[in-house]
């Protein structure tokens, strides 16, 4: 273990006391990142041990408060309320975002890609169709011009 790691594993008695003040005497409730250092201090410091015992007294008292479990009737009532309800409600924005981005990781990738590719494909298809229009010969143009001029009537 290098010096940096050793320093990381150390905790002062002041910080240990703060931990007990906040989280109590049970090591399971101490912050994970400081737990190992705090337990190490407990092994060597009688003061730390005394502080922990004092904190455990309050913990034990807190543990004495009884708690009643929820009834099966409550559980069934909650489920029954939902059975009557339809699908969870969504606003228009959420609906649009979900439609565009999907709900799964795969959909998060595929749907936007598809949404971007769709106008591109549409443009290519229209472009190809325009270039593929049958060419009109010159004779037909002249004939159409004459028809148009007749439709306008004689000029005064």
């Amino acid at each position: 273990m290098n010096k940096k790691q050793t320093r990381k594993m150390m905790i002062t008695i002041e910080r240990f006391s703060q931990l007990l003040d906040a989280y109590g005497g049970d090591a399971k409730r101490w912050p994970l990142e400081e737990r190992a250092a705090a337990l190490k201090l407990l092994e060597v410091s009688s003061e730390a041990h005394h502080l922990q015992q004092s904190a455990l007294t309050l913990d034990n008292l807190l543990n004495r408060i009884p708690i009643s479990s929820p009834t099966t009737a409550l559980r069934n009532h909650i489920i029954a309320k939902i059975q009557k309800s339809t699908k969870p409600t969504k606003d228009a924005w959420q609906w649009l975002v979900e439609w565009l981005l999907g709900t799964t990781t795969l959909e998060h990738v595929l749907r936007p890609a598809f949404a971007l590719a769709l106008p591109l494909l549409l443009g290519i298809t229209i472009g190809l169709n325009l270039t593929a229009l049958p060419e009109i010969d010159e004779q037909q143009w002249v004939f159409e011009d004459e028809i148009n001029l007749l439709a306008l009537g004689p000029l005064e």
Partner: peptide
């Protein structure tokens, strides 16, 4: 607590999209 828990789960159902 019964009322609060019931309301919590109803919100979970209705606000699931959030």
């Amino acid at each position: 607590a019964d009322d609060i828990v019931q309301e919590t789960f109803l919100r979970v159902w209705h606000k699931a999209s959030q």
